[in-house]
């Protein structure tokens, strides 16, 4: 499909969403008017409070996700290298994968007494097994033919890791990171709502919901989605395209 075709389909999908929103607004009392939301949007974005709350949530997410990525990758390498680590860490991976996000949020916030670290811990706890599982897939499908090349040409261990292993694992890492990233945004807001946070997206959602501020609720939702999509397509996918520029594009 051409770029224009892709763009047209995306526009159609957005228009359909707006139509569905309008339909919802016309038939229920719990959905704000798209026009009212659009009118309030410039003032909402111009308010420094909005950016402050976005920053708070983003900070919680970034630190938690970074911890999840580091933990997950370390666990994957350990599981791959050592049968003992496999036996030991697999239990944690399995446990974390099967823990409902809301329960994890409540437990973490109870343990950390609603401290900032609690929000970060829950994001790290929920995202780390996704990194482990994704990276383990990569490690298990490692191309040993390229390892032979490294051995025959006497490539140093450091070069082997940097030039062979890391680029080989990059697609698996990006795939796992995209999943973990999408999940992290959801879980951080859940944690903020369950933790009755005073700051952040979740706190503002909660406030708007409690006081039935429908337009505010929709504005926060829109901004939240815009931020997640920007992080996904503006940052992650752009980075991915740069890293994988060596791949053949469609039609090549």
């Amino acid at each position: 499909m051409t770029r224009t075709g892709e763009l047209l389909w995306s526009i159609c999908a957005i228009l359909l969403l707006i139509a569905a929103w309008w339909f919802g607004y016309s038939h229920t009392k719990f959905i704000a008017s798209p026009i009212e939301v659009a009118r309030a949007l410039p003032q909402f974005l111009g308010n420094p409070e909005t950016w402050f709350h976005m920053g708070v949530t983003f900070q919680r997410l970034a630190v938690g996700l970074a911890a999840g990525v580091i933990l997950g990758m370390s666990a994957a390498f350990a599981i791959h290298r050592s049968p003992l680590a496999h036996q030991f860490l697999s239990v944690y991976v399995s446990f974390s994968l099967r823990t409902p996000s809301a329960i994890a949020a409540i437990m973490a916030l109870a343990m950390f007494k609603r401290d900032e670290i609690g929000y970060m811990a829950v994001v790290g706890f929920i995202t780390f097994p996704f990194m482990t599982v994704g990276l383990l897939d990569g490690l298990r499908s490692a191309d040993h033919k390229l390892d032979d090349v490294a051995k025959i040409y006497r490539v140093s261990t450091w070069c082997h890791v940097r030039d062979f292993l890391v680029p080989f694992l990059a697609p698996y890492t990006f795939s796992a990171l995209r999943n973990a990233h999408a999940l992290a945004w959801k879980i951080v807001v859940v944690a903020e709502i369950f933790g009755a946070a005073q700051e952040g997206f979740g706190a503002e959602f909660n406030y708007a919901f409690d006081y039935f501020l429908l337009v505010d609720l929709h504005l926060w939702l829109l901004v939240f989605m815009a931020l997640v999509l920007f992080a996904e397509y503006g940052v992650l996918r752009t980075l991915e395209r740069r890293v994988f520029k060596w791949r053949l594009r469609e039609g090549e």
């Binding site: 033919k145 390229l146 032979d148 090349v149 025959i152 040409y153 006497r154 030039d163 062979f164 680029p167 990059a170 060596w246 791949r247």
Partner: peptide, 15 residues
């Protein structure tokens, strides 16, 4: 130091 030409090229595609 030896050279080896494999049946398949075995070049690193990312370089």
């Amino acid at each position: 130091h030896v050279g080896y030409v494999f049946q398949e090229h075995r070049l690193l595609p990312w370089r």
